[in-house]
Computed example of a mutant assay.
Amino acid sequence: MTVAFVTGATQGIGRATAERVAADGVHVVCADIQETATTVKAIEAAGGTAEAVSLDVRSASAWEEAVSGVLERHGRIDFLANVAGVVNMVSEDTVVGLTEEGWDYVIDTDLKGPWLGMRAVIPGMIDSGGGRIVNISSLAALRGLPNLAAYSAAKGGVAALTRQAAYEYGPHNILVNAIAPGTIDTPILGDITPEMKEANAAAHIIKRLGRPEEIASMVAYLFREGSFLTGLTYPVDGGWSAKGNY
């Protein structure tokens, strides 16, 4: 049995990823700080297999407990998708307006979380002969965007960490890549106005917001295909990164 561990699986890109990977016949461990029973039920209703795991990605001990449990039950983790992430809801997210609390809130989830996940999973991948890891970065890692200082730093760190881990663990047949989504229509956009959504859609060459399943399909490709790809961050952004202006 092939096993994938997906964080942030309650909603948005994480849930879409869990459902997409399960549709390929992979057993999915749906991990989130919130309950993931709804995601598991949806996967099972579609004929797949999944299980729910409670996980705070900021906690090293939580990662160790979750991963050791999966290894005890299944003997392996073949794929890891580090999807869980937040934006700064604590303070303004500019260099001057950012607070230490706001910085820590974003960095701990969006950058420390993927590091802890890779640290927990890679030893087992080495023991089993290899694996695939996909980290979710952001277009904010590649372009300067307003009011996203901590978020940009975290997602830029994800891209850099992805490159380094790919180099370090490539000899163990572990391929590590990242995806940089454009603006995706997920619950994280729930509080923005229709005008803001329109502005975000207009930034893309494809004049709409992305869908979670479009990111999930890229994760699935990097898991099951992509055998000569590692260490890179792939924009899935409706062409936004190809534009010469915002």
Rank of each mutant, 00 (worst) to 15 (best):
T186I: 05
V67K: 12
V106F: 09
D237K: 09
V121Q: 02
E65C: 00
Y167C: 04
T10D: 09
Q11N: 12
V176M: 03
I133L: 15
I184D: 12
C30P: 12
I133C: 12
N135T: 06
M1Q: 13
P181T: 01
T109R: 02
Y221K: 05
S152T: 07
A178E: 13
S91C: 05
L116V: 09
R211H: 08
P194Y: 08
A81K: 06
I43P: 11
V121D: 04
N135F: 01
G190T: 10
G113M: 00
A45K: 05
E213V: 07
E65M: 01
R208Q: 13
R163D: 07
T183K: 07
L175Y: 10
N88W: 08
P235Y: 05
K155M: 13
I136L: 07
I126N: 01
D110F: 07
I77V: 04
V40N: 03
V26D: 06
V236M: 01
E65P: 00
G85A: 01
I107C: 02
T193F: 08
A159I: 03
V176L: 02
Y221P: 04
L142M: 14
E19I: 14
R58S: 14
I184T: 12
D108R: 06
I179P: 15
A46T: 11
I13V: 10
A23I: 01
K243Y: 00
G25D: 06
G157M: 02
G129M: 11
E92H: 04
S61Q: 14
D110S: 09
A23L: 05
V6H: 03
T109F: 00
L98M: 13
T38G: 15
H27R: 14
I33V: 13
V26I: 10
N173L: 14
M89R: 07
Q11S: 15
G69K: 03
L80N: 12
I133S: 15
A220E: 08
A22I: 02
G69I: 03
M89F: 01
A4V: 13
E19P: 15
W63E: 11
A203G: 04
A199G: 15
V3W: 06
G48H: 09
N200E: 12
T230V: 01
V176E: 03
G117N: 01
N147F: 06
R20W: 01
A62T: 10
M1I: 12
L232F: 07
A62M: 06
V96G: 03
Y169H: 15
I43Q: 01
G124D: 03
T233F: 03
A31W: 08
A120Q: 08
T186W: 14
G226W: 02
D78Y: 15
I192N: 08
A60W: 06
F5P: 02
I179W: 11
G102I: 00
Y151V: 02
F228N: 05
T183L: 05
G131M: 00
T10V: 05
I133G: 14
T193H: 07
I13P: 13
A202M: 03
A50Q: 05
L229D: 13
S68R: 09
A149I: 00
Q34A: 15
Q34K: 09
S217C: 06
I192Q: 04
A4G: 14
V67T: 12
G48M: 10
T230F: 00
H204Q: 04
V134R: 00
D32H: 05
G239A: 11
M118H: 04
C30S: 08
A203H: 06
A84P: 10
Y151P: 08
S241D: 14
R76V: 06
A4Y: 10
D32I: 07
E101P: 05
G231E: 07
